[in-house]
Each structure stands twice: as structure tokens, then as C-alpha cells.
Design a protein around this nucleic acid. Structure first.
Lengths: 165, 165
DNA sequence: GCAAATCATTGACTTTCTCAATATTATCAA
DNA sequence: TTGATAATATTGAGAAAGTCAATGATTTGC
């Protein structure tokens, strides 16, 4: 209903999806475009691109950032737990952890409970970089949610949590 | 803040993320896990996997399905428009369209307005397969949203539309 | 103690993504 | 009109991401 407008009142009819850059409005009414599967896929692509851009000067992308964030979370995840939670194949986890470990951002520590498993903890450098990176991802979050009120943002978060866990 | 609640007050401390299968609950309270960027990524992975599974007996995945759906939508998209809307590189579009065209599911037709561009339209076979596939994706949608009331489903859809367009 | 399962790791392989180059056609300004 | 610039689909190369099977070390359950 409320097209941001406030600018000059255009003669043309203005609908809700009028702030679209192109003439793609007609695709938005298609059944496909109404599926939340489609919408989440789109949100993820856009959000990822934006976050990667904001993280680029830290030499991080969102994947490694997520790994680092878990290592910084105080939850002391094992590699398998991290992979499960982040939907990553074990082999992807070792590659990601390898690189972050080489950069001195985290460590593999033996699990005293289970010597097969390795627990990830961030180094001081890792925590420091994570703090900076978290600012960037917060900016990205802010920007993708800029069209929503605080209440709506909480609603969206809660609804996503319900379908995802 | 406001957990949907309003339901019966359970004796045991039951939070929103209590129906989790594993012992990953501790990760869900981490800052990362509260970002909608993270939640949409997760939703997309899970939704994709489920939809691909349900589509497998039609020899379709969600990507080709999305292309077919657009060709069936009556909007007559050009390849570039389709790529823009689906966040696909032009080269990915030609590969996807090639395969669907070889299977006789859609056609490239010259755009009378612009002879550089090619407009995608579904064949009869394409529309038929799409109808079957749409049932499957609808099932997948139903299943991923099974924890939400109809009202909540609409809310989620509307909120996603706001952040995505 | 033994068989089966689990964890991290490696390697091979496929799929997806990203980019640059190109031929054809449109657009726009001089 | 002509000539420069941009846009469309296409090809191909290379990087990144995802999938899968096999293995050594260890744990679990019988």
C-alpha cells in the first residue's frame, strides 16, 4: 500500500511492488514467486552477496565467518557438530577449519571425552577479527531488513526459527 | 520478545526451539543462529533438499523446475529476464534452457521486438510435467510450513516479500 | 574382547558459480 | 545515415561448492 513515495505524486498507478528497479513486477505475481521456498532462496542469495561484499576487506566470506562465529560462541563445538549445524559435509568442515587455523584464527583441540573428535576454539586474533566481522554482518542484516519495523523483524525471525528448527 | 505463546502454560520450561532432534539446542542461542541471514540460508538448504527429493521421480530438480515454472507462467520471459529474476548467470540460463529444450519441455522463440533476445514458452509436455512437479513442490512447501498456522504462513510470506523485492 | 558405529581426514568426482570473449542486434548521438 | 556504445545469448575456462566413498583412530554396545 504505502509506496515510500513522499516524492512527487506520479500519475501512474503505484502498487506495493513498485519500488522494484526493473519491469519485473509481472513475475512477482507468478505462483513460483509466492512460494516461501523461492523467497528464502532469493533472500539468501541477496543477503550472501551483500555480506560477502561487506566482509571482503577482512578477507572473509560468510561461510568462514560462520565457522569462526561458532568457534567464538563459547559453545565449543566439535567439527561434526559444526558441520551438522551449518549443513556442511565433514570434508567441507576440514577445508574451512584448515584455512582458518592456518591464519591463526582458531584451533583444533582434542576432546578429552572423545579422542576422535576435535573441538574448535578461537584464538585471540580470531576473536578480534570476529568482532570486526560481526559488525559487518550486522550492517548487512540491517540493510536487508531496512524495510521492516522492529516488530516485523522479530516476527520474521521467530517464524523462520519455527520452520527451521 | 513475545514468544507466540498464548497456548497452554507447560510445566516444563518449553521454549520455541524445544522440538529439536539432537543436542544442538545450545547452538541455537548463539548470535549467529539468530541472524535472519543464517536462518534463511538454513531454510533454503532444507527446503531445497526436500523439494529435490520429492521431484526426483520426475527427473527434475528445483532449479530446472523454477525455469520451467517461469516458462509456464504466461509471462513470456526472455532468458535475461529469467536469469535476473532467478539470480542466474546468463551462461547458467543457457545450460538450463538447453536441457529443458532437449527434453521437449520448452521452446526458445524469437522476440519480434528484439531479435537478440529469446522468449521462453513451455510446450504441452512442459506444462503437463510442470503441473505434476508443482504438486510436489507444494507438498514440500506444506511440509516445511507444517509448524505454522495459516495466518503465520501468510505473515511469513509477506515479510519475505518485503525484504526480497 | 569383538563387531559395529563414529569422527576426522583424504581424494575423486560432479555440480554450481564466476568471468571473459564473441557474434549478433539495438540504441543513441553526431 | 553512420559510427560508437551497449545489450543479448552463447561458448569456454577456471574457481568454488557440494557429494560420496574409503580409511585410520577411537568409542560404544553386546
Amino acid at each position: 500500500m504505502p509506496p515510500s513515495s513522499s516524492t512527487t505524486a506520479a500519475a501512474a498507478p503505484a502498487s506495493a511492488q513498485d519500488r522494484v528497479e526493473d519491469g519485473m513486477a509481472r513475475f512477482q505475481q507468478t505462483p513460483l514467486a509466492q512460494e516461501v521456498a523461492f523467497l528464502t532462496a532469493r533472500a539468501r542469495v541477496r543477503g550472501n552477496a551483500l555480506a560477502n561484499e561487506l566482509l571482503s576487506d577482512l578477507d572473509l566470506k560468510v561461510r568462514p565467518f560462520a565457522v569462526l562465529a561458532m568457534a567464538c560462541s563459547g559453545t565449543n563445538p566439535s567439527q561434526r557438530e559444526l558441520g551438522d549445524f551449518l549443513d556442511l559435509d565433514p570434508s567441507q568442515v576440514v577445508a574451512l577449519v584448515d584455512r582458518l587455523e592456518q591464519r591463526g584464527l582458531l584451533q583444533r583441540e582434542p576432546d578429552p571425552r572423545d579422542r576422535r573428535s576435535k573441538i574448535l576454539t578461537a584464538t585471540a586474533a580470531g576473536r578480534k577479527l570476529h568482532a570486526q566481522a560481526a559488525e559487518r554482518t550486522h550492517q548487512a542484516e540491517e540493510q536487508t531488513l531496512r524495510g521492516l519495523t522492529p516488530t516485523e523483524r522479530n516476527q520474521l525471525r521467530e517464524l523462520l526459527i519455527k520452520i527451521v528448527y
